[in-house]
Design a protein around this nucleic acid. Sequence first.
DNA 1: CAGGATTGTACAACATTTGTACATAAATTC
DNA 2: GAATTTATGTACAAATGTTGTACAATCCTG
Lengths: 334, 334
Amino acid sequence: MPTPTDSDLPASHGLYPIRHVCAETGINPVTLRAWERRYGLIRPLRTPKGHRLYSAEDIARIRRILELLDEGVAVSQVGRVLQHETPAAGSSDRDRHAPLLLDDAAFGTHTHRPGGGIAPHVLDPITDTLLETTRALDTVQLERSYARLLMRHGWEGVHERAFLETYETLREAARHDPLDEARFAVFTAWAVSSLSDQLRSALQLCEGPTCPCVVPASGHRRLNGLLLLLASARQGLRVLPLQDVVSPAAMQALTEQLDAPAIVVHTPSRSLQSSAFEGLQRLLRADGVPAFLAGEGARGLADLNGPRPLEILPPSPLAAADQLSRQLLDPAER
Amino acid sequence: MPTPTDSDLPASHGLYPIRHVCAETGINPVTLRAWERRYGLIRPLRTPKGHRLYSAEDIARIRRILELLDEGVAVSQVGRVLQHETPAAGSSDRDRHAPLLLDDAAFGTHTHRPGGGIAPHVLDPITDTLLETTRALDTVQLERSYARLLMRHGWEGVHERAFLETYETLREAARHDPLDEARFAVFTAWAVSSLSDQLRSALQLCEGPTCPCVVPASGHRRLNGLLLLLASARQGLRVLPLQDVVSPAAMQALTEQLDAPAIVVHTPSRSLQSSAFEGLQRLLRADGVPAFLAGEGARGLADLNGPRPLEILPPSPLAAADQLSRQLLDPAER
DNA sequence: CAGGATTGTACAACATTTGTACATAAATTC
DNA sequence: GAATTTATGTACAAATGTTGTACAATCCTG
């Protein structure tokens, strides 16, 4: 067994003690340890007694860190950058340079990997991307992927079809595999939050009369409702989102108070507690401003006869939004 | 349609502190902050402690702003121009740069609104403001008011008490008056959306292991759950929000896949369909990583004996988040 | 020209970041 | 076994940031 040469490096193993690394890079050992402790920037191997052993890659990584620092990146953020620079490196590497504690297991390698998992290729390529990214269960990654898709294909391009298609595909897959169920849950949560967010932004730019919209609070129609709201708001229609559990009385009061020109009601899921469902029926049957019926089940609700004018919107959220805004917005302002 | 630059978004995912941005662009940090405060020209990300982090895009945007200023455009108008220039690129971006706050305009210490105050002053003044604003049923205004409160009292100041107090007050009022029910619905919808949005932003800065959190999908505990998630994320804990309808199997799969150090379960509403409720019980009874129980009813769930370690969190969402992050995050000098 | 809004900057009071120092214990080297 | 190096935890301090408030110089506008 060759003893490590005294003065210099045990280069035979390619592993260097901290003193060598510091001499090489000019960093104070204390700093190097602080980086490791605080940000997990480098995670050297250890001797059985705990002494650090840096590999050549570690040193290269440190050099890269110095570059980034020089560039002005905050030390606390360097880790994130590096993580994105070396996404596909072997998972062992990833473990080693993870932030402080353990790290997440998978994260979206997301290079077009047609050999991949769940999705057959009949699907829209956009859907494919979304699905692929969702597999990693990393919402931040999902966010990025989504932003990129938006940039490439435009809002309509992504939401015309792919968005709901992704949702449905995942929903289907969720039936068979618990992990897919988890993916479905994560995607749904993210989607709802993202759409709500966009809705809020879009509404800031809307003017004109407010139009209360009753949309499903839960269930698989929820995204449809949100898409309808968002698409309408993007056209400039100032919608006011309400969940389908509001009482008819509240809706009436609201409509009056706001002097709303119309209300929109999205078909609720069948599973909705019948009390709420009946509430909606009662609302529609009551007198008042015109009501627009959205969603696949709209036709079924249109039979109610009452004094309130009812109008059926197309099943596609985007198309429905088009028609809505066409009828409710003053053409002069657009 | 060929995309002009199909190159991926920012090659550098670096996030820069304000000092670097200022050195780079020559703007006084004070000015940069004033632009943000007054016109929302750039809305950088924030570290959990509130330090600004500018992305490469942000810097590019600042350069563009300087160009416009040079062209003679008024600072106050730059936002409008930019918004027009960048039409449909991710709406979330639009939100990030939306104008929001007022400035030096001395908004009085909220003594009396000329519109006639109804709320008795036993309530927190912050609550009072929120209630007052909610009366108008205008979410955009609510947004502004909220932003102002945040500025004045800080996030904790607003959410420690006032936020939920407002919610409960409205919920109570909703029982008696349809219009108040409508207000309650509007406030809730807005609150959920706002908190979700903040959560998404906060998560972008979180590192470390992902911690799945089961929170109520609906009902009056929903905001509690969201607050817990958000407060935790603000401390740097990378939570993964899941609604309380996920199956135990999915949770197990998820936990394994992510190699999560623990799971968090917020007490569901009693009204939760018993199947889902039992699912949670089953999940808690199963073997696995430690589970933290949050919410007022946590104590009631802790009796289950199973192999999984259970720990009860304080009922206040903020306090719970504190404890959570203290136990799950690396104790390195925070 | 007076009164008001715009807009860049200054300052105070306080919090965070981050490199480094120190004390103590343990390992390594000679 | 003495001298040196390292690990770990705690602690600091200087630089940097943050918010709220204030103010002066401009620029409008009637």
